[in-house]
């Protein structure tokens, strides 16, 4: 079996119920079932996860790094909630 026959999959792990699935890496597999088993073996060996997603890498739509200066709000500092004075005694923030 040639490696070229195995497609690339992105792997997402949810560490416990209530949290979001986080991207942890990628792997190669021949189909969805093998991708799930490989993800289990490669990324959850030490009990890292309670749930796994595998997604064909071709299904990911990515932004273009060349566009990042116009695409992302890099200079809009006013959007950061850092200009407030938090009164003494306020907790829970």
């Amino acid at each position: 079996m040639g490696r070229e026959a195995w497609s690339l999959w992105e792997v997402f792990v949810r560490s416990r119920a209530g949290l979001a699935h986080q991207h942890v890496g990628s792997l190669h597999a021949a189909d969805a079932e093998m991708a799930l088993e490989n993800a289990r073996d490669v990324y959850t060996r030490r009990g890292e996860g309670a749930s796994l997603w595998v997604v064909p890498a071709t299904a990911i739509v990515a932004s273009d790094p060349a566009d990042s200066s116009s695409f992302f709000a890099l200079d809009e500092e006013f959007r950061h909630p850092t200009h407030y004075v938090v009164p003494d005694g306020v907790t829970g923030i």
């Binding site: 792997l27 190669h28 490989n38 073996d41 490669v42 060996r45």
Partner: peptide, 12 residues
């Protein structure tokens, strides 16, 4: 093993 993923699977 024939692939990295299977290598880890067999070791597991």
């Amino acid at each position: 093993a024939p692939a990295l993923e299977e290598d880890i699977a067999l070791a597991n």
